[in-house]
């Protein structure tokens, strides 16, 4: 974080008279690993709370079950509720097909991030001749793809949140609503930070071009991005898939 590497790495390298680091790794890389370790505990606490509170809400709507408000009955299917007026009937909230799609999008963004890093590492290699090869070798391309996929994921989340609210679940409704929105909201905030980070890298790329000497900066952003992705895999499995 506190390093002159962002303004211009070549310049910083000249003025370098610091002793080499003990491990040979850059300080920031180690700090980011420590940060990720800490973030793990954050998400472990949030996810555990969700799981502890699963099934403890005294009123619906519920994640995977149908709910009749009038009689406060729960069922695996709408039929199990017996006779229940439509206005009193609440569907299961979680929409697995939609979220599978958004999960796929986020996974693909990790792939794009890997390609972005590779592009920066190879930025000094001679330019290929074809236009397409050029586009596929450009760090700008893959940073944009990553950022756009990340934003798409956030779009899915915004859609999910609004539709849940329409289906009768807000952060205040019940324990499920409180713990679900808090957990996924925290994750979404992390994705947002990641997208902003990517945009900042793009800004530098347009200004002066990302060189192999910048690989570390991109690498650190990538570490964070993959971490956020892995957390989502955990959330998707534990909240959505396991019923």
């Amino acid at each position: 974080m506190a390093s002159a590497a962002i303004p211009d790495p070549h310049h910083a390298a000249d003025a370098h008279s610091h002793p080499p680091t003990t491990t040979g790794l850059n300080h920031r890389k180690i700090a980011v690993w420590a940060f990720i370790g800490s973030e793990c505990m954050l998400f472990v606490s949030l996810i555990s709370t969700y799981l502890i509170y699963k099934g403890r809400s005294i009123a619906g709507p519920y994640p995977h079950e149908w709910w009749c408000r009038a009689t406060n009955t729960i069922g695996k299917t709408a039929a199990e509720l017996g006779t229940c007026a439509p206005a009193e009937t609440f569907k299961p909230i979680l929409n697995i097909p939609v979220t599978s799609a958004s999960t796929f999008v986020l996974l693909m963004s990790s792939l794009a991030m890997v390609l972005a890093l590779a592009a920066v590492e190879n930025a000094d290699k001679p330019k290929p001749t074809g236009t397409w090869e050029n586009i596929l070798r450009s760090s700008k391309t893959w940073l944009w793809v990553t950022a756009i996929l990340g934003t798409t994921f956030l779009g899915f989340q915004a859609y999910e949140f609004t539709s849940f609210v329409h289906e009768g679940l807000t952060i205040r409704t019940n324990l499920f609503g409180s713990s679900f929105f808090t957990l996924t909201g925290f994750h979404g905030a992390h994705v947002t930070v990641g997208v902003l980070w990517l945009l900042a890298l793009l800004g530098i790329d347009y200004k002066r071009g990302l060189k192999p000497a910048d690989a570390l900066n991109v690498d650190i952003a990538a570490l964070y991005w993959h971490f956020v992705d892995v957390v989502w895999i955990a959330i998707f499995t534990l909240l959505y898939l396991i019923q």
Partner: peptide, 18 residues
């Protein structure tokens, strides 16, 4: 904080909280 400011239920026993 969310319970106090935004009306969530994490610590509301009546809502089933632990």
């Amino acid at each position: 904080m969310f319970d106090r400011f935004f009306g969530t239920n994490f610590y509301t026993i009546a809502a089933g909280a632990d």
